[in-house]
């Protein structure tokens, strides 16, 4: 078999530079993200995300289909008919089927609910709201 002509180091560096550019473009994304929310809400949603992490909700739940699989996706749970704050609090405090009860402080619970509401406002995770296209991609239905 023939030996290599272009030095591997050259290709390695070239690819790495491209990767860095791509990465930086993504790190700048928060600047481009439209802020449809007030800064205080944003902060509270971030605190709610910490609660979500601290109690490991993602072990059983998904957001946009990402997470564990024992429970349902909750990206848009706050928009489900009948899923008022009071109802959600009850589910989280008392558990439901395979979901254990969680002992959250009032502040944690408020933050968590703001997080779930903000998540819902970002879009929809329901596959039924999208249509596949012939070129293999899909688009959001109107």
């Amino acid at each position: 078999m023939p030996s290599v002509k272009v030095a591997p180091i050259t290709i390695f560096i070239m690819l790495s530079v491209l990767f860095l550019i791509y990465s930086v473009a993504i790190y700048l994304k928060p600047l481009r993200e439209k802020d449809h929310q007030k800064a205080t809400i944003q902060k509270q949603a971030a605190a709610g995300k910490d609660v979500w992490q601290k109690h490991n909700c993602h072990t059983c739940h998904q957001l946009y289909g990402l997470g564990g699989y024992l429970g349902p996706d909750v990206t848009n749970v706050t928009a489900k008919p009948g899923y008022s704050d009071a109802f959600l609090k009850a589910v989280i405090n008392n558990g439901m089927g395979l979901m254990p009860p969680f002992d959250l402080t009032n502040q944690e619970m408020e933050d968590l609910l703001v997080f779930l509401q903000s998540m819902n406002e970002t879009g929809t995770a329901n596959p039924q709201h999208y249509s596949p296209k012939i070129n293999g991609t899909f688009t959001l239905n109107d």
Partner: peptide, 24 residues
């Protein structure tokens, strides 16, 4: 290292950018 960028509020406070980086 990238895996812990979320520790900075700049990333964490933007839910979608944050999830994009998380899955990157």
């Amino acid at each position: 290292i990238e895996n812990y960028l979320w520790l900075f509020p700049y990333f964490r406070e933007h839910l979608i950018a944050d999830m994009t980086i998380q899955w990157k």
